Computed example of a mutant assay.
Amino acid sequence: MGGPSAEREVSLRSGAAVSAGLRRAGWRVCDVDVRGPDFVLEPDTAVAFLALHGTFGEDGTLQRLLEERGVAYTGCGVQASHDCFDKAISKRIFEAAGVPSARYEVLAASGPRRVTLPLPVVVKAACQGSSVGVAIVRDAGALDAALADAFRYGEQAVVEEFIAGREFTVGILGETPLPVVEVRPKTGVYDYASKYTKGATEYEVPARLLEATTREMQEVALKAFRAAGCRDYSRVDFLLSQGDERPCVLEINTLPGMTETSLLPKAAAAAGIGFEELCSRMVTMALERRVRNV
């Protein structure tokens, strides 16, 4: 839990919730506050449960370190973690696999800052989570500042067409899509404050959608999950565009929030899977991989 990223505090909350849930389920747990690559695990560690969000924990770095130590861990492997965390790479994966996603451009900090997509656009730091380094730009005069902020977090920025619509998320557990969750930020924008301020966002699960739309969103989520090489669990975030109600994948979160009120646990609960069982299933999948040595 923890980690050195901009999402450290959120990661500590996820880690504390998972630790408590696993203890209630009867697992022996040792909490490890990771601050960098020199973290220490107990010698008899069977599985490392990853509850770190953002850089280092979610981008494949921690996964690679654990594989080098021969330690089994929960969630996606090194490559899928890296690719899903990098929005420029994941957009190309979606494009190649036919997964619906917004039109986009990738800009480099060292290159020309010329955007050809019509305004409004969404500017995103390529390698951040929790809406860090994200801005909706409606006025051309605000574009340079949005790009400068995105480049504070890395060498690339992704600029997407702005799609007006409702926001949803689909959790995947194993190879099974969970019930769809609708996300309703009271400000109209699901930014960092809306995600982590109590009462700032309303959630509905299962989301009130036509059965065909629910099924389509779940099928698209599973397609994206597989195309990116994910395993065990992830959360696929969507926009449902106004008018044609076309599902559009925003991103895949390979280590989604894991407090008892986070989106993936909410979806699991709607499927009849309690928090302790959810955490236990994640550990069990990693243990089974350890036995198979994969």
Rank of each mutant, 00 (worst) to 15 (best):
G2K: 05
G3Y: 04
P4F: 04
E9S: 11
V10W: 13
L12H: 10
L12E: 12
R13W: 01
R13P: 01
A16I: 05
A20W: 06
L22P: 05
R24Y: 00
V29Y: 00
V32W: 01
E42Y: 00
A46N: 09
A46V: 13
A48S: 13
A48F: 15
F49Y: 15
F49W: 14
L50V: 15
L50K: 01
L52I: 15
G54N: 14
T55Y: 05
T55L: 14
F56D: 09
Q63K: 07
Q63N: 08
R64L: 12
R64V: 03
E67A: 09
E67W: 00
G70N: 06
G70W: 05
Y73N: 06
Y73K: 08
T74N: 01
C76V: 14
G77F: 03
V78T: 12
Q79E: 13
H82C: 11
D83P: 04
C84L: 03
D86V: 03
I89Y: 02
S90T: 14
S90L: 08
K91H: 07
R92D: 15
I93A: 04
F94H: 02
E95V: 05
A97F: 09
P100D: 05
Y104T: 05
E105D: 11
A109K: 11
P112A: 13
L117H: 05
Q128H: 02
V132F: 05
V134N: 06
I136W: 08
D139E: 15
A142Y: 04
D144F: 04
A145E: 15
A145T: 12
A146I: 13
L147P: 06
A150H: 11
R152D: 13
Q156Y: 14
Q156F: 14
V158P: 09
E161T: 07
I163Q: 07
A164E: 15
R166W: 05
T169I: 02
T169W: 00
I172E: 03
G174V: 01
G174F: 02
E175W: 06
E182A: 09
V183I: 15
G188A: 15
Y190M: 04
Y190G: 14
Y190I: 14
Y192T: 09
Y192R: 09
T197D: 10
T201W: 13
V205W: 00
P206G: 14
R208F: 07
L210I: 04
E211V: 12
E216N: 08
M217I: 10
V220F: 00
A221C: 07
K223C: 12
F225E: 02
A227L: 11
A228W: 08
G229R: 03
C230Y: 07
C230N: 13
R231H: 13
D232G: 09
R235V: 13
G243S: 15
D244K: 14
E245M: 02
R246A: 09
P247G: 00
P247L: 00
P247S: 00
V249C: 01
I252H: 04
I252C: 08
P256F: 08
G257E: 10
M258V: 12
T261W: 06
P265N: 02
K266A: 11
A271G: 10
A271S: 10
A271M: 11
G272C: 08
F275K: 02
F275N: 03
E276V: 03
C279Y: 04
C279F: 04
L287K: 08
V291C: 03
